[in-house]
Write a protein that binds this DNA or RNA. Structure first.
Lengths: 208, 208
DNA sequence: GTCTATATTAGGATAGAC
DNA sequence: GTCTATCCTAATATAGAC
C-alpha cells in the first residue's frame, strides 16, 4: 500500500528543514521535491505553520518518551551513555528546530512554552541521573555543583549539534551523535571516581 | 553636531535586530523607527545585507581586540573573570548574530568563514589562559581534558545568551552578563586547586 | 485527491522630484 | 540628503476545474 501524501509531505518537509533550515524552505520547494502541486500541499495542510506544528508534535512525543527517567531505579554510567546516544539521535532527527530555535519559537509562538517545558524536563532528567550516580558512589558533587552541571548538560544537549556543524564544516546531513555524547560524558568526568573515569574512557574508545 | 543619518541607521538597526531578531526586522521598520523614508535608508546603504555586514565588521573588530591574549604573561583567575565579563558584554551588544546564527551565516555567506575564525581564536584564547593557570599551579588538567574544556568554554560563550533568554523568560533587552560569567567559571572549577575554587566563590558573590 | 491558475501580500529595492 | 511613489520578486495561500 502506498504512503499517504500527507505523510510524504511531512517526511519531505522534515528532510528539507533539516538540510537547509526551515526559514529557507518554501512551500513551493516542498511540493516541487515531492512532484506534487502546491495546491495539493495546501489541500493536506492549512499552512506551512501546520506542517511545522505537526513535526513539532512528533518531536515532543519522542522527547517526552525519552526523558521520562524513573526516579526509583539506579542508573549505571553505561546506561547513561546509552541514554545520551538516544537523546542525540532524536535531536539530530529534528535538528531544524534547534538550528533556528529563536526564530522558530518567535514565529510559531505556541511552541515556545512547550519547548521550554521540554528543557525543564531534560534538566530534571539529568538531575535524576546525577542523583542516582551519587547514591551509587560513582559521582561526587555538592548541590550547587550538581545544579550548574545539569544546567550545562541541558545547554550542551541543546546546542551541540549547531556548534558541531559550525566547527566541522561538514555536510548538514551526516551528523554523528558520537562526538556529542563524548562531550557530554566529559562534562561529568571531573566529578566521577577513578572507576567512573576509566569507564568513560572505555566507552569513548568503543564508540568512535 | 548632529549624528549622521548613516550612523543612526546602524545604531537603530542593531537595537532592533537585538530586540526582535534580524530576520524579523524589515528595512521599512528601521526607517519607520528613525522617522526617515525607506528611500533615505537605501541612499545610505545599498541593501539590508550591507547594514548587517557593517555591524558584523564592528563586532569582529571588538572581538579581535578582546580575544587577542598575550602568551608570554601570566593571567590570574581574577583577570580571567574580568576577561569573561568583557566578552559577555561584547556578545550581548551583538547578540542578534548569536540568536539567529545558522540563519544569518547561511543568508550572508561571506560572514561564515569570518565567524568560524573568531570561534577558533576564542578557543585559542581559552587555551592560552588555561596554560597560564596551569603554569601557575592554579589548575591541573591533562591535554585532553584541557581541549575538551576549552571546546566547552567556546560553545558556552557562543550559546549562553540564547539559552539564558530561553530559560529566563526575560525581556530580550536587559541581559545580565553575570550569570554567563558565573557559568563559565564553574566549568573551570573542578580543575582548580582549593585556593582557586575559593577565589571563584568570592568572585561570584561580589558579582551578583 | 490532485491539478492549474491566480490572488494576496510583504519585503527589498529603485527612480526621480525637491 | 531626503522624500514620495512605484517596481519587482518571491512566498503564502485560495478558487475552481478535473
Amino acid at each position: 500500500m502506498k504512503v499517504k501524501t500527507r505523510d510524504r509531505i511531512l517526511q519531505t518537509s522534515l528532510a528539507l528543514f533539516n538540510a537547509i533550515g526551515e526559514p529557507n524552505v518554501t512551500t513551493l520547494l516542498i511540493s516541487d521535491e515531492l512532484d506534487i502541486s502546491p495546491g495539493n500541499l495546501y489541500y493536506n495542510f492549512k499552512s506551512k505553520g501546520d506542517i511545522v506544528g505537526e513535526l513539532f508534535d512528533a518531536f515532543e512525543d519522542e522527547m517526552l518518551d525519552l526523558i521520562t527517567v524513573p526516579e526509583d531505579v539506579e542508573i549505571s554510567l553505561e546506561q547513561h551513555g546509552f541514554f545520551l546516544h538516544l537523546l542525540f539521535e532524536a535531536i539530530a532527527r529534528y535538528r531544524f528546530i534547534y538550528q533556528d530555535l529563536v526564530n522558530i519559537l518567535s514565529r510559531y509562538d505556541r511552541l515556545q512554552a512547550r519547548f521550554r517545558k521540554l528543557l525543564r524536563k531534560k534538566d530534571q532528567a539529568f538531575r535524576t541521573i546525577c542523583d542516582s550516580l551519587h547514591r551509587q558512589g560513582v559521582m561526587t558533587t555538592n548541590a550547587r555543583e550538581r545544579d550548574a552541571l545539569c544546567q550545562q548538560l541541558t545547554l550542551t544537549a541543546c546546542y551541540w549539534i549547531s556548534y558541531d556543524s559550525l566547527s566541522h564544516l561538514q555536510d548538514r546531513d551526516d551528523v554523528n551523535p558520537a562526538r556529542g555524547v563524548f562531550q557530554m560524558l566529559h562534562l561529568l568526568a571531573p566529578y566521577l571516581n577513578e572507576q567512573g573515569r576509566m569507564d568513560i574512557e572505555t566507552m569513548s574508545r568503543d564508540y568512535v
